[in-house]
Design a protein around this nucleic acid. Structure first.
Lengths: 370, 370
DNA sequence: CCTGGATCTGACAACGTTGTCCAGGCTCTA
DNA sequence: TAGAGCCTGGACAACGTTGTCAGATCCAGG
């Protein structure tokens, strides 16, 4: 066996100075110095300027031990002089954790999601993670596209407010270890963590509240039953009516109509039909607002309970009685579960339901005006 | 000069076998083959399974030409079988553009920022970019921390709603080519793109509106003048008063008080002092809400104009007259300018002011009740 | 049968960071 | 003063992708 060290394996040495030649460095310097992030200096540049090795710079940047104060000072100086900022993209590639989580919202312009999103962000921040988000605009395809784009970014986890009802597209991702929590609405066709409001119980209590105040002809204005929350609230309405032994007439229900103009018409119809309702249960905040407008134009008082709280509800005449969800708690709970999945503390998917709260302000306590 | 190659610089050789030791490679192969993103397959894995080269997979994934349909089918099959998803982190590192922009908000729970943020997201989406965001919670340090963290992620650009008034920390980033637009409030101490509402003009018009309805003793409840928007609105108030030749009394102004309880006290004081105001101009949406509450408890009617529109303002008694900003337009304009910076279409920083709109609903048209 | 092009394919080197491991200098003890 | 053990610093190979470039393969035309 040949034990000689082949010549060409030796470190190349400059003939004149005797200094070792590090070919990479030399080649790099005579290329156009433009690198792609504008013109960001890299650790290599910092190292060259400080006259230290690459890894030493890395150590300083990451506060790792094993660097003399003097060296550290030199490196820090070079960092400041060059305006160096570590490239987290590269870091992520190397480390495998991105320290970021994704949030797939339904619509940020809906005031319900502001506090929810804010709560998720706070939890993420507490765990040192950034939040990447996007809105599905209630479109299942867009939800999927967004969720998968976030997975391609290798977010550590995903909080999803579902627009669709089939989430099998997430299966490979779940298998690959992407922590995932569905919030506000459950996941469809897969087994995953969900954090929901008690939509059924909340609606049932709200309607029962109206019944307790003497109403029997109670209208329900809700969203498409395809949406889980809408279906549950409808179920709550039916349950409360059934518990009270009141048969529900079809003309008292409006389902799946959401744009204000048509909600308005639906409400007006149930108020003036052959057996007009004396109270309305509104299935979500946007419907509630429209119904308030309709009722404001009428003289006969009609009782109203809305699902979701709305700002200024207490200042209206009468104040609006609502079944309030705690949007912030939903977001917080979901995000916390997500990080517990990442810890490994949490393994089995669960469905968590947070209670709702009936807030009486007047509109729900009006007696029936027959 | 010593021209010898030091022995210890030679490639290490195993004493017994004489073979060169390549430590990394050898060690790696007997390490667990688990890679870090859970266990994601890479292009290499796909290539191996499809029996093609790495680059061919890349070509298929990116829809590049030059792949036989048959090869493409094989690759696609392998991709599906393995559940491969391209790692955008690595892609970003290679390509230099992240196709993501950052948004530094003040507070997502504030309803004003929902539509703004949503508008930014829509524009980003139209340009194929993701949105990474975070809230500064009105804390300048947190704003800086967040903005720099986003830069470290190498976002292509940044939309910032400033909390602080010194943005020199962004200088190296701007120099490095990070597109940046400040929105709602201007950048401090640096020259950068800003998209603002016409806070001065809006406030002046709002106050002039009150004056036109006969008011002379008009209160101003605003935020800290350190905040640009607050300062401008105060300036608008003063200008309108001066234009009308009305000297302003100190007791009519509350500046920098923001928590509801203290706003309430401030409002009550200016309503019951020695020269009580007959109208109030509220400097932002949160103040407006609190003032509405105070006025609702009083019998003497007091006129009110608020800056920022609030939901349901039309349903209160009386309807609340406001100076409305177009939050969505602010966001859209800012984001569009950002992408034009990235295009290279836009070079010189500019300050853009969007007009506000006075919406009369009743509260601002009440006559003075002396 | 060879040549010349047009396809298609794959090796290889980046991108900027971090983990591993070794070298060289130092201090401390025997 | 040697040997053992620390401390500091640096070389090098990943991470998973894409750009470059050159090698295969094929077919038509001479």
């Amino acid at each position: 066996m040949d034990r000689r060290i082949p010549m060409d394996r030796r470190i190349p040495v400059d003939d004149r100075t005797g200094r070792r030649i590090v070919p990479e460095t030399i080649r790099r310097s005579d290329r156009a110095p433009e690198n792609r992030y504008g013109n960001r200096p890299t650790m290599k540049d910092v190292a060259a300027r400080a006259g230290v090795g690459l890894k030493t710079v890395s150590r300083v940047v990451n506060g790792e031990p094993g660097v003399t104060p003097e060296t550290e000072r030199r490196v820090q100086e070079a960092i400041d002089a060059l305006g160096f900022r570590r490239n987290d993209s590269a870091r992520v590639l190397r480390k495998g954790r991105t320290a970021s989580i994704g949030l797939v919202l339904e619509d940020l312009a809906d005031p319900f999601y502001g506090p929810l999103s804010r709560a998720v962000e706070e939890v993420a921040r507490a765990h040192g993670a950034l939040l990447i988000n996007g809105s599905s605009a209630e479109d299942p395809d867009r939800e999927q596209e967004l969720a998968l784009a976030l997975c391609a970014r290798r977010v550590d986890g995903l909080v999803i407010i579902p627009a669709g009802d089939d989430h099998r597209y997430m299966e490979p991702e779940l298998k690959a270890g992407v922590a995932t929590v569905f919030v506000d609405r459950p996941a469809g066709k897969i087994d995953a963590d969900c954090v929901l409001s008690d939509n059924f119980g909340g609606a049932r209590d709200g309607v029962a509240h109206l019944i307790a105040h003497g109403h029997r002809r109670i209208g329900f204005v809700g969203d498409m039953p395809r949406i889980h929350t809408a279906a549950e609230r409808l179920r709550g309405y039916r349950a409360a009516m059934e518990d009270a032994g009141i048969p529900v007439e079809d003309s008292w229900m409006s389902l799946g109509v959401t744009d204000p103009e048509r909600v308005r018409r639906a409400a007006e119809e149930m108020l003036s039909g052959p057996s007009p309702v004396t109270a309305i249960f509104a299935g979500n905040n946007r419907v509630t607002v429209t119904v308030i407008r309709v009722l404001a134009e009428r003289t006969r008082p009609v009782a109203l309970v809305g699902f979701d709280d709305i700002e200024l509800a207490d200042l209206l005449q009468p104040g609006v009685t609502v079944v309030a969800q705690d949007a912030a708690a939903l977001g917080r709970t979901a995000a916390e579960r997500l990080f517990r999945q990442l810890d490994g503390t949490l393994v089995t998917p669960e469905r968590i339901e947070l209670p709702t709260r009936l807030i009486t302000r007047g509109s729900g306590e009006l007696p029936p005006a027959d």
